[in-house]
Structures are given as C-alpha cells and as structure tokens.
Amino acid sequence: MNGPTQRVRILVTVLAAVLLAGLATTAVVRARQNAASASPDGGHGAIAAASPDAPRPPGPRLQVLSNGLLSTVDLADPSGTRTVTTQKCDRAYTAGGTTACLTPAGALSGPRLLVLGPDGRVRRSIPLTGLPNRTRVSADGRMVAWTLFVGGDSYAGGGFSTRTGILDTRSGRLIGSLEDFTVFREGRRYRAADINVWGVTFAADDNRFYATVSSAGTRSLVEGDVRARTLRTLADDVECPSLSPDGTRIAFKHAVDADPGKGWRLSVLDLATLRRTQLAETRTVDDQAAWLDDRTVAYGLQRADGTNDVWGVPADGTGRPRTLVLGANSPAVLPPVR
C-alpha cells in the first residue's frame, strides 16, 4: 500500500469516528431535551443519562418509557431525578430481573422482542410482525408475553386483529400464538374464526395466566393454562387484565356501555366473587394497568397533543387520580437492588 493512499484511508476512518461520536452525543442531548419538554412547565427535574447495563440506583424504582427510552425514577419521588438509558422500546415491562422490550420497527426491519437480563444485556431477541401493543413478565421473571396488532390499530374498531405469544425464558419454549389454544365458554368448547387474544398477565405459578379473548363482539376475561393449552372464560366485558400482587384481584378496562367507541373505564374485579369496583379515574384509559402495590394501580393516559403521562389511583374506588411521571408510559415497579 503506498503512503498517500494509506493516509487518506486513515483520515476517512478518523472523520467517520468523529461523525459517529457527534451523532451519539446529539442523540443523548435530544433525549434529554425531549424528556424535559414533555411536561407542561417545560421540565421534569433532573435527567441522568445511563447505559442500559449501568448499575441501578438503590431503593425501589418505578420503571417507565420516557419518550420511548427505558428509564427509572424513585418510586417514593417519581417527579424527581429521572435516569434515562439509550434502550428504545415501544412497550416494556420488568419483573423478577427480566425486562421485556418491544422495539419499534426500523426502516428495513420489523419490531423485535428483546429479553433483557438484570444487567440490562440482551439475552434473547425474537423478530415479530405487527405494531407493538402489550407486554408482561411473570413475577419471578421466567415467563414473558407480548401482544401486537397485525391488522387494524385500535381496540375500538371491529376490524382489528392481534397476535399474542408467550416465551418461557428458562426452557426456551416459544408459543407463537395463543389463538392455537382451546377455548372453553361456560364449560363447553368454543370454536370461531374471529378469535383474538391479548393482554396477558401471569399468575405466581408460571403456568396460569389471565388474558382477554374477543369473539362475535364479546370481550371476555379468560384464565389460561400453558401446559394444557386452554383458555376458559370467567367474565365478559373485561379487557387488558392485570393481576394484583396478592393474586386476588384483576385491574382491567371495560368499554363504556359495552361500546369501545365510547371509551374505557378502569375497574377492579374480585376473582373470588366476580364483584366489580369502578375506580375514581373517570377519563378513558386505553392501557393495561400495572399494580404499584396491593392498594394502587398505575396506567398511561394520553393528552390531547399525544403526550403520555403515568398516573396512579387507589384500587378500592376511593380517592382520586394523581400524576406520577410526566411524559412517560409503560410503568413497572422495580424492587430495591440487593
């Protein structure tokens, strides 16, 4: 190789490295600026940048997506300093040291399910098709579930179609679609071509789960069994269930006057009695709520300009909603680091 040619190539390499470094710096600055501009008063407080595998601050944290970036705040002071990583997700949830991240589609690729370990590193990556919509992880971190829209883009419409899958991170078993499970309604096997399943929430035994099944215009809460591959209906007009930490109640949304076009109300269902309690949030909530503890549920609520905020409300129907994290969605409680 002659001298001038080698020098030119070295110069090009150096310039490319400088350009990439500049782009990375710009991305971090924009992430911070976007996070700050999401609140009505122009800021959330301090923003701390971190890599996805950076050590998490001590104490219980509330994980959220801040402008699509995996982030955490102090659970006791959710309006305080926000630690923002570079991991981008459309939906995310963490439990038992496992994070499920549904990534947005790229210019030349579809969305993916990223399964992250406690260190923030990707343990598994699964290509998906559709628009990311819901994801959940079992309490011990073993089971991961996700839902995507594969036709239509709203639960309010009659023409939507979903695809919901489950991954056992311990065995590696992948269930690509829960629509392959056998559905039982009122004790009898139910068959239909229009069955859709979405919004999984896991029980403590890593085998049972709850979800929504839609068919013939009826949306029902079902109890699922992974090993038996069955779905059994429990109650109608129950969508996007979320099981309480004590396993006794389901937080859910239900259509106003059974008409999704009128919006949804948040309620809680007692699994033993099937008694329903409407919560104090009277605005329409199109989200799968998350329990902060046995007394409080959190959820995303979208403003008129499209910005999401995380809110909380008592689970017994008393009190009133309160803002938890501005400019964020996908809440999940992270226990203290041991």
Results as ranks from 00 to 15, higher is better:
Ala21Met: 15
Gly247Leu: 01
Arg124Phe: 05
Asp293Trp: 01
Leu69Pro: 03
Val150Cys: 02
Arg227Phe: 02
Ser79Phe: 01
Asp237Ile: 00
Val268Leu: 04
Val337Asp: 14
Pro314Thr: 10
Ala76Val: 00
Val268Trp: 00
Thr85Arg: 07
Leu334Ser: 08
Phe209His: 11
Asn329Phe: 13
Thr273Cys: 08
Cys240Val: 10
Ser138Glu: 08
Arg189Asp: 08
Pro245Phe: 01
Asp119Tyr: 04
Thr169Gln: 00
Asp270Trp: 02
Ala304Phe: 02
Leu15His: 04
Arg338Cys: 12
Asp286Met: 06
Gly306Trp: 03
Thr98Tyr: 02
Gly159Tyr: 03
Ser138His: 05
Lys262Ser: 03
Ser220Cys: 04
Arg208Thr: 15
Asn207Ser: 12
Ala107Asn: 07
Gly80Trp: 06
Lys253Ala: 09
Arg232Thr: 11
Gly120Ser: 05
Val213Asn: 06
Ser171Pro: 09
Ser244Glu: 03
Gly96Arg: 01
Ala203Trp: 06
Lys262Ala: 06
Pro241Val: 08
Val122Gly: 05
Phe252Leu: 08
Leu102Arg: 09
Ala31His: 10
Pro335Val: 04
Pro104Thr: 01
Gly141Pro: 11
Asp257Pro: 00
Asp237Ala: 05
Phe149Asn: 05
Ala76Cys: 01
Leu116Asp: 07
Leu269Ala: 04
Thr318Leu: 03
Trp291Lys: 06
Cys89Ile: 02
Thr212Val: 07
Asn34Pro: 00
Glu186Ser: 15
Pro40Asp: 14
Leu167Val: 11
Ala139Asn: 11
Asp74Val: 04
Gly106Ser: 07
Met143Trp: 00
Gly80Lys: 04
Arg189Lys: 15
Pro57Gln: 14
Gly312Trp: 00
Asp294Glu: 12
Cys240Trp: 08
Gly224Val: 09
Asn133Asp: 15
Arg219Ser: 15
Leu62Arg: 09
Ala251Glu: 04
Ala107Leu: 13
Gln288Ala: 11
Asn67Gln: 15
Val150Pro: 01
Gln288Tyr: 04
Thr135Arg: 13
Glu186Asp: 15
Ala107Glu: 13
Pro321Arg: 09
Val238Ala: 02
Ala235Thr: 06
Ala100Trp: 03
Asp168Arg: 00
Ser177Pro: 09
Trp311Thr: 04
Thr162Asp: 06
Val200Lys: 13
Ala193His: 12
Gly42Ile: 11
Thr26Val: 15
Asn2Asp: 14
Asp53Cys: 10
Asp286Asn: 10
Val325Met: 11
Thr201Glu: 13
Leu274Val: 02
Glu223Asp: 05
Ala48Cys: 08
